[in-house]
Amino acid sequence: MTQITEKQEAREFHAEATSVWRITFGPLLWAVHFVVSYSATAVVCAKGGDVGVLRLGIGIGTFLALAGIAWLGWRAWQQWDTLRNRGWENDTGTSQDRHQFLGHAAFLLAAISFIGVVYVALPPLLIESCQ
């Protein structure tokens, strides 16, 4: 009996490996958006490219990044399941707690990534020149 539970635990623990990866995806999108926006701006401004095209590109990239982060955030929100199970702490070491904790962390990281992407995008969208 105990052996079966342990095996089951091990399997469920392994299953969470993907969701450990998943919590990094929000910040990863933020990082990619940040690097691409800044380097594209630096290159276009240094080489004298079309600022209008650059701003449009950053606008589209921002929309895609925000959509991706929002989707990740929604998935994480469901995994956290905080409305049904109103506990902020998931500290008992059970597989359900691990599952919910990873959802919780992923949701908060998605939220901060969303804000980060918006704040990174505002200057190029509101300032019209390289100067």
Partner: peptide, 17 residues
């Protein structure tokens, strides 16, 4: 609030350029 302040203040940087 910070978002609103950013949206209000960033376009002010256009005029001097």
């Amino acid at each position: 609030l910070l978002g609103a302040l950013l949206v209000y203040s960033l376009p002010l940087m256009n005029a001097p350029r």
